[in-house]
Simulated scan of single mutants.
Amino acid sequence: MSKFEHDLQQQLDSLSQEKQPQRDLWKGIELSLEADRKEVTESGFHGKHVALAASVALVAMVSWFTLKPFSPDSQDTLNGQTLVQALSNQHEQQMDALLVKFEGQPAVTQNWKQQLQELDSAANAIKAALEEDPDNTALLKMLQNVYQQQMMLVERVHAPKWQQI
């Protein structure tokens, strides 16, 4: 062991094993928990709940579509394009709500809108593929995944976890 390493080890050994915070952290934790409860109560949904609801809605619509018996004379049969349009409309409403929620809050990164546009381009590519194969459940899941990534991006850029306490 070199002299530097030996000196470093001695200094490390001499440090106190316990580090006490400079102030009481429980007050901040309690305020954060109360703010989260208040936000959930006021909005009715938290971002994770919105994503979960969207997932459940997609699975229900895909299941209903795939399990519903085909009847050529039925006018209410949900086709793939109608499902894609419904999914897109739902996502647009959720994104609008998120953007309004975080309006005026500074973003932690400057290029988040570019990232959002890249995800939007991916969604458009998936929609174009769905025009060719509208009943492809893998493509529908990919579209839903891109939509969830967009929502998580907006949430993380405006309310990162390290700022919540």
Rank of each mutant, 00 (worst) to 15 (best):
A107M: 02
L116F: 10
R37A: 15
D133W: 01
T41E: 10
A122S: 13
A51R: 15
A35Y: 00
E118R: 02
P72E: 01
V84C: 02
L99V: 02
T77H: 12
Q105R: 12
K48S: 15
E131T: 15
A53N: 14
H49P: 05
T41D: 11
R37D: 14
E42F: 08
K48C: 04
V100I: 07
W112S: 02
Q94T: 09
L98R: 10
N89C: 04
L87R: 02
K101Q: 06
L78I: 11
S55T: 12
G80N: 04
K38P: 03
F70R: 09
T41M: 09
L52E: 15
P69M: 00
R37W: 05
V56C: 07
V40F: 01
H49M: 13
Q94D: 14
S55R: 14
A35W: 00
A97E: 07
E30P: 00
L99Y: 01
F102C: 05
D73E: 13
T82A: 13
D73N: 12
E92L: 07
Q85K: 13
S71M: 07
A57S: 15
L130A: 09
L130M: 03
T109V: 13
H46L: 10
Q85G: 13
Q105Y: 08
V62H: 01
L119R: 00
S63Q: 05
L31R: 08
A128K: 14
E30V: 10
F45M: 09
P69R: 03
Q110C: 05
Q94M: 06
A53I: 01
K27L: 12
P134L: 01
K127Y: 02
K127F: 01
D36V: 07
N111W: 01
P134V: 07
A60V: 03
V100N: 11
T66M: 06
D76A: 02
V62P: 12
T109I: 13
